[in-house]
């Protein structure tokens, strides 16, 4: 393959890696929006917290002398998902449930408050500076001419792709097949009716926050390991990007969030490579504006049909 071809493949790999992360976080936004019609602005912070949980668990395990990679990874992911889910549940309990039935602006503000609170709480507890994570998975494969440009596919990138695929398949099966998933779909179509048929809608809403948080936890741990560094502000920009991905794919649609994440990741990585790194946010948000102009419901969103 020519050098240009190899360069192209490399950007696809990088884009898919980044896109998987965005997609994992975006699902949290889209599910919550699908059920209560509101954006959970504290979701980015939930993702940031999971990266810290990952850091603490990995450090703790290595102090106990457990360093065998698969074991560390599984324990870290499980712990991060559990603890972060508890945060997700609490956000719903504190910032949303007491305000159920109030105008939409009110829970929006309380969620922003929750986001500021969480960010500052982590700053106080963990310090505001970058903290490095020990590399858990290092190395990778190189393809191509040893003298010229080489495509680099790290084990970590493969890990991210595998974990994302597993999470997506699990989520799709859960929503499509399971009894609780059925209740989720019913609630997202008509919450009032679902309630009158005996479904405890408050529990379903809490469940969507928990699922969103668990997926964000996978993303947080993987990003922490991939970039090797965490800080209390990482949730803001990642949250914004994932939110963009969710809107791009059609907010409220789970496959839309997956697609939106991948599209955004690829856009960023190609812009960085062929244009300039500084322009990557300009291009991705420009893409968002264009898609919303020509397809206001996003790529896979369905237009709201006026009921008669």
């Amino acid at each position: 393959m020519s050098e240009n071809g190899l360069q192209f493949v490399q950007q696809i790999i990088n884009g898919l890696t980044l896109g998987s992360i965005y997609a994992l976080i975006a699902i949290g936004y889209t599910m919550v929006y699908g059920i209560i019609g509101m954006i959970n602005f504290a979701h980015g912070e939930i993702y940031m917290i999971s990266a810290y949980v990952g850091l603490i668990v990995i450090t703790g395990l290595s102090m106990m002398g457990i360093e065998y990679m698969p074991v560390v990874l599984i324990i870290t992911l499980t712990m991060a998902m559990l603890i972060t889910s508890a945060y997700g549940w609490s956000v719903e309990r504190v910032a949303y449930r007491p305000l159920r039935g109030s105008p939409r602006l009110v829970p929006l503000i309380s969620a922003i408050g929750m986001s500021i609170f969480l960010q500052n709480y982590v700053q106080l507890a963990q310090g505001a500076r970058n903290i490095a994570l020990p590399p858990l998975i290092s190395g990778g494969w190189r393809f191509g001419d040893a003298a010229g440009f080489q495509v680099y596919l790290s084990y970590m990138q493969v890990m991210i792709a595998l974990a994302t695929t597993a999470a997506m398949v699990g989520l799709t099966l859960f929503i499509g097949r399971s009894r609780l998933g059925r209740a989720c779909r019913a609630c997202s179509e008509d919450r009032g009716m679902a309630n009158l048929l005996g479904i405890d809608t408050d529990r379903v809403i809490a469940l969507t926050f928990v699922i969103g948080a668990a997926l964000a936890a996978v993303a947080g741990v993987l990003v922490g390991l991939y970039y090797g560094v965490v800080n209390p502000f990482m949730g803001f920009i990642a949250g914004l990007k994932a939110f963009t991905a969710a809107v791009l794919g059609g907010i409220g649609s789970v496959p839309g969030a997956m697609l939106g994440g991948i599209v955004l990741g690829l856009t960023e990585s190609f812009t960085s490579a062929y244009l300039s790194t500084e322009y990557k946010d300009v291009v991705s948000f420009g893409l968002l504006v264009l898609i919303l102009l020509f397809r206001p419901t996003g790529l896979l969103g369905k237009p709201d049909v006026e009921k008669v």
Binding site: R182, A183, E189, M193, A194, L196, L197, G198, I199, K307
Partner: peptide, 27 residues
């Protein structure tokens, strides 16, 4: 249980899923 004046089925779910989800609390 009740119905409304306008039809309030879960429109994107299948007919049988509509009947299964209504048994959520029974199962």
């Amino acid at each position: 249980v009740r119905t409304f004046q306008n039809v309030r089925l879960f429109r994107t779910m299948t007919v049988v899923e509509n009947l299964l989800v209504a048994q959520h609390s029974r199962v």
